[in-house]
Design a protein around this nucleic acid. Sequence first.
DNA 1: AAATGACCGAAAATGAAAATTGGTCAATCG
DNA 2: CGATTGACCAATTTTCATTTTCGGTCATTT
Lengths: 191, 191
Amino acid sequence: MSVDRRKWIIDAAAKSFALFGYKATTMDQVAKIGGVGKGTIYTFFANKEELFQEIMNRLVQEMKRVAEEVVNPERNFFDNLHRVLDRVLDFREEHELAIKLAQEVREIGTPMAQAGIQQIERAIVGYIQHQVGLAVGKGEIKPCDPEMTAFVMLKLYMALTADWKKSHEPLPKEKVAELLRFYLQGGLAPD
Amino acid sequence: MSVDRRKWIIDAAAKSFALFGYKATTMDQVAKIGGVGKGTIYTFFANKEELFQEIMNRLVQEMKRVAEEVVNPERNFFDNLHRVLDRVLDFREEHELAIKLAQEVREIGTPMAQAGIQQIERAIVGYIQHQVGLAVGKGEIKPCDPEMTAFVMLKLYMALTADWKKSHEPLPKEKVAELLRFYLQGGLAPD
DNA sequence: AAATGACCGAAAATGAAAATTGGTCAATCG
DNA sequence: CGATTGACCAATTTTCATTTTCGGTCATTT
């Protein structure tokens, strides 16, 4: 029945994208793995791009779920930030599809893979932005523009993880969390 | 005489690197512009890479000079920080060689050009690092790792100036200074 | 002794032929 | 009859042999 076929296709595509990346995944491949004719894929998805989008949406959903799992409204903002970042970072580092896409961007620069990791990043910022908004409401952190603050947090995070290791030893993620806290929570003004 | 020839070569190379980038600058080109035989270049520089290094060293020297011009020990740390970053990043945005190298990295990813812009960045961080060290000594800011702090400052500044405007209205300079102060000086912890 | 440019091997650009791939659709199936 | 299929097509990508370019050398010239 059609619902099953759709699922087969999605599963096959997820497997293939994670294993070979966006570019090296062919529609023939997906059809074969999914055990359906190639034409069938096009009755559910207009094109390869849309199929990829479906997979990416699921990945982002899963990340949100995983982040939600770890955040606790009882705890203070920076604890939650640390936990979410830690969890999401682990998730991203371990998830085959995320790994493969990052690699594909680095090595071939496939535009679609680039869009994919950007989508992941935007989801993370959006989530942080939401948390910042809540924290400001609760008076846990100073009033500030949540969007700008989430942006700053992301950029700082990316600088500490991606940029730093271009010319230094990579920082362990506990160190990254500690630094984020040091610079953004307390600030540099002497006590 | 040999000193003059060396200068001719350097000037020709600077012109060519700024105009065509690293890869598209040929040694024949430099020789022709410099009005010397190609072999002569190799009596002063072991290879293209070394010639490029000479040009880059001069660029970094000039940047240091420009930064020095604007820093004032009387003023407080964050004022000087803003002035230096502002001046240096303007300089970088206007200097043909820096522009060309950035473009070359974006468009072809020439490893040598990449090394070049990294060198510029390292010089800026080095300079800020020095200022941070002084500020820590004077008790103007909390004790912290000067290198890491300088790195964070540059990245944050670049995020607020260059990255932000990719998806938003550009921030006026005063706003950037204010935000840098807001996030790094005071921190997000409520008073 | 200093300067040069013809010369060399290695690397890159070129481009045409061959192979691959996303997407379509007439034939097939249940 | 609607759902499914895979042979087929145009377009893009890969391959690969040939040509060109370029960094660097060195015998010759100045």
